[in-house]
Design a protein around this nucleic acid. Structure first.
Lengths: 104, 104
DNA sequence: GAGTAGTGCAACTCATAAGTTGCACTTAGG
DNA sequence: CCTAAGTGCAACTTATGAGTTGCACTACTC
């Protein structure tokens, strides 16, 4: 479960990829279109899109001869929920530890 | 707001740091103590702890001559909530875009 | 007060990721 | 058909991060 979670965080740990996600938030776009808005090359964007696609944060859609990408909101939601669950689990564990520590 | 979020994700995008967090979940520990449980050097762990501390996921506590670290569950919670909020915002935006697209 | 456990700092290697340039391939459109 | 827009692949440079070794410093402890 967690082994698929870490790469998602790694993907979200890059400013440029957030820029791409933000740009895609205003509508699906191709790598070439994104290259017009962002201060990086098309190929750099293509690599980032590959990374984002790998972890399921983005999805390719062929439209004619171009490949547009759309944000998969569900992946973001799922990641948030799993992180929240982990946080709750941690809180419980930490609370238990503190209780043990106090009883000493 | 978001500018402090990305480094947190970058910090969470490393397996070794998750190992450290998991180990710290069983009780506060020093870098030397962690080095006994994990297959990496104390200095490597110290660096990871510095990164985790930088983003507020971990907190140092001096106990005599050693420095123990404890997990800050609140940071994990806050990160989850912010990610969830972003996901919701995104869903709304994507829904709006789809509605516009359908009306064409 | 001497020894030792624990920490901190610095320099180094090594791997990987980000970004670039260049070229080949494909496919819509006049 | 033939041009051009869009994409894909490959090689390269560069920067950064993970990990190591070595040594110096601090502060408990006996």
């Amino acid at each position: 479960m967690t082994d698929t979670l870490v790469p998602v965080f790694a993907a979200l740990g890059d400013e440029t990829r957030w820029s791409i996600l933000a740009a895609l938030g205003e509508g699906d776009a191709s790598a070439s279109a994104l290259a017009g808005r962002l201060p990086v090359t098309r190929q750099a964007i293509a690599k980032h899109l590959a990374v984002l696609q790998e972890v399921g944060l983005v999805e390719p859609v062929r439209v004619g001869r171009e490949v547009r990408f759309r944000v998969v909101g569900a992946t973001l939601d799922a990641t948030a929920r799993r992180l929240e669950a982990l946080g709750a689990e941690w809180d419980a564990r930490l609370a238990a530890i503190r209780q043990i520590a106090e009883s000493l």
